[in-house]
Design a protein around this nucleic acid. Sequence first.
DNA 1: CATGAATGAGTATTCATTCAT
DNA 2: TATGAATGAATACTCATTCAT
Lengths: 188, 188, 188, 188
Amino acid sequence: MARPKSEEKRLHLLEAAAQAVAERGVGAPTALVATMAGVAEGTLFRYFPTKEALLNEMYLYISEQGWSSVDTSFDPSLSLIERARRIWDAHIDWALAHPVWNRAVTQLSVTDILTAETRAAEMAMFPDVHMLELVQASDVTAGHPSRYADALFIAVANTTIDFAMREPGRITEYKDSGFLAIRRMFFD
Amino acid sequence: MARPKSEEKRLHLLEAAAQAVAERGVGAPTALVATMAGVAEGTLFRYFPTKEALLNEMYLYISEQGWSSVDTSFDPSLSLIERARRIWDAHIDWALAHPVWNRAVTQLSVTDILTAETRAAEMAMFPDVHMLELVQASDVTAGHPSRYADALFIAVANTTIDFAMREPGRITEYKDSGFLAIRRMFFD
Amino acid sequence: MARPKSEEKRLHLLEAAAQAVAERGVGAPTALVATMAGVAEGTLFRYFPTKEALLNEMYLYISEQGWSSVDTSFDPSLSLIERARRIWDAHIDWALAHPVWNRAVTQLSVTDILTAETRAAEMAMFPDVHMLELVQASDVTAGHPSRYADALFIAVANTTIDFAMREPGRITEYKDSGFLAIRRMFFD
Amino acid sequence: MARPKSEEKRLHLLEAAAQAVAERGVGAPTALVATMAGVAEGTLFRYFPTKEALLNEMYLYISEQGWSSVDTSFDPSLSLIERARRIWDAHIDWALAHPVWNRAVTQLSVTDILTAETRAAEMAMFPDVHMLELVQASDVTAGHPSRYADALFIAVANTTIDFAMREPGRITEYKDSGFLAIRRMFFD
DNA sequence: CATGAATGAGTATTCATTCAT
DNA sequence: TATGAATGAATACTCATTCAT
């Protein structure tokens, strides 16, 4: 069966793509991605049929990484608000620990490169962390699709991350303030 | 830089750039922009030295348009919360009325194309609508730069716009819910 | 060159090459040929050192197939003109029955891929069917190399095949008319 | 109106394309064509949208050149057979004088690159030289489309050209013999 | 011996920018 | 001043061939 296709190279390509997009936007050359991944230009296209496919898979890969850190902090015995805080902390912490990935995801998400399938797959990836169940009583999101609550949560989180990254000495303050905003919106 | 002759052409180019970026992302060709503006390829570069300059100016132009509609609705005799609501409504309405411009701005803002000068100029453009004065008492934004309040406001607004655009029949509901979120965050 | 193991695979590769060239021209990828032959990409190069070698051998293989059907219909007891007609029929029938091979040969023959050796080998392949002996008395080909008569025969045949393929309902008419042309040229 | 697009460059590109295809087949790089034409790589694509378009136009251009030399020798006062001979001579002479163009046309015509429009345009290009009128009485082509007569004529001519090119000292003999074949086929 | 992963030179096409008209 | 022809570096993707398994 000759050499098997290396899962390691696949991951290197995915991570190189994230790095490249973070640094140069979605216009980052595939040649740069390949170089960063330590493989030949042509090799990239044996792992991903097109650049678009690469970027979609990269997006999913990163989302997976990000939300898996949230999942592990999930604990059903906690109160709703405590669970929301856990999710909040995990998300912010992860983003701050991986600024490059955060940036890559931000760049991609405003583009038309992401397919409907990718966006759907992302949603399906973390069913348990949907805000909906946490905030079902909130009149802010009453009557709206559950994704609206998620999106508000993420929007506030991303804004908070943005500011925290620029003032690393005040991360805690931003995290607290941001969550206070969430709490007021949904739980008070 | 001697002013080029036709201010009209300049505006056409700016608007064409917005349209082009909205449709094709920041990679939209300058030739396309020129065509959309009804001028020749080379003419674009008599008005803007580079593509980056064009996009920066376009960003500012659109922001100006957007916030000018807010300015006109500014009325110092109203209560803080009523003024916030006016700003909210004006912003959402403008964005929904100009989806193309909204999209162009969104695309650009995640890019490195926007210079620090542009971002600063944008801030300076609407000093009177800063949320800060409205929410100075809020413990959510206490101790943070005034831009944090602005950014949270805009983040919630953009999320709301996003959903409202996809469900045009429920625009009013989204506007109300979104503002409820703002009100809770900052005023309750 | 040690003979590779499977003669069957070799033939599969040859036929796959013909199919591929017929469908995609001489630029058809070796990977496609391999896939069509049911072997791995690399395997092709264990049977043929280069793509050019493969195409040359393929050309010869097909010519061989084609002319072998003529040989079998060769009957020395017939008159010259009857023998010519047999050859004509066999050639046309074979081409119409194998349009793919016919097309592959046509594509290859205008290319520089075919070596002088290949062209010589093709000639040597069917000494007995040379037109020359049939038409030695013809003043059309008098004084010219025997290949000229062959080439005229084949040119008229290929033209006839071309038209017959496009009008399958009138194959008989084209065969008759084409041979009438041959007969007039050489025998009348 | 700036510089007008140079008709001269267009012709250089067309002729360079013919040369390149003659030398390297239809796979000849567009970069080579541009270099041979003395223009930059990008310039080629301002004159022709794609390589395919270039090759189609080149085919038509060459056909036009070739048949125009035939047209000029057209003289209605001559007998049918004399007119056929004129056409024959003009065609053979032109091909021998322009071996490169002849080769380019041969390469292209077996390919799928030529569109139906191109083939139709070629036909329309020389209505007056159709063999049909010359040979309407011939029982070889009776009942067949007029293109069959043309095709037979061209097939015999090309074969003759082929041999004449390889034996330049015997051009006259080949021309005479070839036309004898034509005459027998159609006129005797 | 067969496989298919890896390679990197090669390909058509795009595009920001310049400059002759 | 406006035009659009000209440019050539850059880009995504292909493919014949090699070689580790």
